[in-house]
Write a protein that binds this DNA or RNA. Structure first.
Length: 599
DNA sequence: GCCGTTTTCGGCCCGACTGTTTTCAGTCG
């Protein structure tokens, strides 16, 4: 775990323990906000002095002192003191959906329950019912929620969630009375994982839409169902690398599932609702603040004049000043339209105009792909045909190097034979450039898996770490720096080696890598596979600020893999990547000149 | 605890749904 992540965890724990001890809620919120700010921070906090810390939004004198204390001593006194007061099991209890600080505190003080097993016992023997405001229904819900958490319900990867959401949207569009349907939430913002699916529908027949939603195939339970909102759990099943909603299941279903929420939106409020439910929460809070500054109030029904009344304006027949489209609401507040991927309260409201971020149509080549020579499923010709079908001008054949034994990596002899075959295919190919390259292993000590005289013969070299992915951050930084500084390396492939929800990967000092990559004209890869998305959004943002080159690649092994570019582009946009900085968006000539400059 | 183009004090986003109440607290997003 990186220092930033460890610190963010401490601050978040402080916030949660404050909730539990009945401390001022706003104090807890402030710590929680600071935790998120630290978590999204590209530079290592240890490299920042107090003055720089204070420049970060949401960090003031007190929290800055706590950060300095953590960096210098490895712990925070206030954290230690709270830990002494608050049993650790309570924090675990609070991770159960539906169990908030008030309820956990109430259970703690009434029954002296401080662990999850003790809570389960109280739920089973009925003693939980002696807690104030705790009835049988609430107890049943908590019980079901614990069961769900224990079976490992975690945030679903973007690449698994998006196809499911798209299918639900298509289904809802066919329901009688439905005018518009769309997905929102973190999925629309392109986050690497999503907790649930937010589906928005505007319709003349809310009852039909609600019924269609709560009874569609795959629904295992209906969590809530009202006039404007319904929540369900959907069973999902693996299907050729994707997950999809399965057929109807009984109550006993305990397999993987995801929550989906339906919101019924009045057509006149479509833009306001889309904005509201797209979030992020922090972006919305920031926007509302700006609205209040201008004597306006913003909710999911629109932007209204603020008049301090307790009854919401839409319930008093007050006309919004903007509500139909996102564009008009942003414009009325004095902002350009902000692309969903940017709405994370990371400075996007300082933009004077909508930035020209990278788009799917900008991608013109794939520079990291495998064939049957190593662990891919396509021949050179099939790979080239696929790239051509995607409208690309160039495809790079980059099979694994010799140390990747598990991936049938190529010995020097096999590589040279393979390069011959690639060159022959390139001569015959029409309308596409085929490059001979390698995805060469960066060995644990930073050396590359082939000698220089071999690498020199290749058109493109992608250097990637595949083993020793638990190295200490300092060792990993040195290792990757060595690869970046290597004179024949073009691209640093999936730099951290992480696998979402499965493997943390390396935690190198990203700022150092970015500076070196910039200096040595090396592109940092954003591996577009939804299991990787490596580099991640915050790293990319730091790279963009340093004008470092980015390469978005699908790491293609099989025909469907090139479609993962969607997730790469979404992630790149979250990192504010522009077409100019993305070498895959360059024309063939510019790319060729850049590649040859290293030979 | 943070923050400030009316503020260094007094605010801090806002609404839906559920369950336990009988007018509202808690949680979520």
């Amino acid at each position: 775990m990186s220092l930033n992540a460890a610190l963010a965890q401490r601050l978040e724990d402080i916030a949660r323990m404050m909730d539990l001890t009945g401390e001022d809620t706003f104090k807890a919120i402030a710590h929680s906000r600071a935790a998120r700010a630290i978590d999204a921070l590209p530079p290592d906090v240890a490299t920042l002095d107090k003055k720089q810390l204070l420049e970060i939004e949401g960090i003031g004198q007190k929290i800055a002192d706590k950060i300095v204390e953590f960096v210098q001593h490895g712990h925070i006194k206030e954290h230690d003191e709270l830990r002494a007061k608050v049993p650790p099991g309570l924090l675990e209890m609070m991770t159960i959906p539906g169990l908030g600080p008030k309820t956990v505190r109430s259970i703690w003080q009434t029954l002296d329950i401080t662990t999850l097993p003790a809570l389960k016992k109280a739920l089973d023997d009925g003693s939980i019912l002696t807690v104030p405001r705790m009835g049988q229904k609430a107890a049943d819900k908590i019980k079901a929620s614990i069961a769900l958490t224990e079976q490992g319900a975690q945030r679903m990867a973007l690449g698994l969630a998006l196809p499911i959401a798209q299918r639900i949207v298509e289904r809802m569009k066919k329901v009688k009375g439905v005018k518009e349907a769309a997905y929102a939430g973190s999925l629309r913002r392109g986050r690497e994982t999503v907790g649930d699916l937010d589906i928005l529908v505007s319709t003349t027949d809310p009852i039909a839409a609600t019924k269609a939603f709560t009874t569609m195939p795959g629904v295992v339970s209906v969590i809530a169902s009202g006039e404007t909102r319904s929540s369900i759990r959907l069973a999902v099943a693996e299907d050729v690398g994707r997950w999809e909603a399965e057929g109807q299941r009984g109550d006993a279903f305990t397999g993987p599932s995801i929550q989906a929420d339906l919101r019924i939106i009045p057509p006149a409020s479509w833009g306001a609702a889309l904005m509201y439910f797209t979030g992020s929460k922090d972006h919305n809070i920031r926007l509302r603040g700006h609205a209040l500054d201008q004597g306006l109030t913003l909710n999911e029904y629109g932007l209204f004049p603020e008049d301090k009344s307790k009854t919401p304006p839409q319930d008093r027949g007050i006309e919004p000043v903007a509500s139909k489209t996102e564009e008009e609401i942003y414009a009325r507040l004095g902002f350009p339209w902000i692309p969903p991927e940017l709405r994370e309260d990371r400075g996007e409201l300082s933009l004077k105009e909508t930035p020209r971020l990278i788009e799917l149509a900008d991608i013109k080549c794939e520079l990291h792909a495998h064939t049957t020579a190593s662990d891919g499923s396509m021949s050179i010709e099939e790979l080239a045909a696929l790239a051509k079908a995607h409208g690309y001008h160039t495809i790079a054949v980059t099979d694994h190097s010799k140390s990747s034994v598990q991936a049938n990596g190529l010995s020097v002899d096999r590589l040279l034979t393979h390069v011959e075959a690639v060159r022959k295919a390139a001569e015959k190919a029409k309308g596409i450039t085929i490059l001979a390259g390698s995805e060469v292993d960066i060995l644990a000590d930073g050396r590359l898996d082939y000698e220089d005289k071999v690498l020199k013969q290749l058109d493109v070299v992608v250097a990637s770490p595949h083993t020793a992915l638990s190295q200490e951050p300092e060792v990993a930084t040195k290792r990757l720096l060595a690869a970046i500084r290597h004179k024949y390396v073009h691209i640093l492939g999936h730099p951290t080696g992480r696998l979402i929800n499965r493997r943390a990967g390396l935690s190198p000092d990203i700022a150092t890598l970015i500076a070196a990559a910039k200096e040595h004209h090396v592109a940092l890869e954003l591996n577009a596979h939804w299991m990787r998305l490596d580099l991640r959004d915050t790293h990319l943002r730091a790279a963009v600020e340093a004008s470092c080159l980015i390469s978005i690649n699908c790491d293609t092994h099989a025909p469907g893999d090139m479609d993962n570019i969607v997730y790469g582009v979404m992630t790149a946009r979250r990192g504010w990547v522009t077409p100019a900085l993305c070498i895959n968006a360059w024309g063939a000539k510019k790319l060729d000149a850049w590649l040859k400059a290293k030979r």
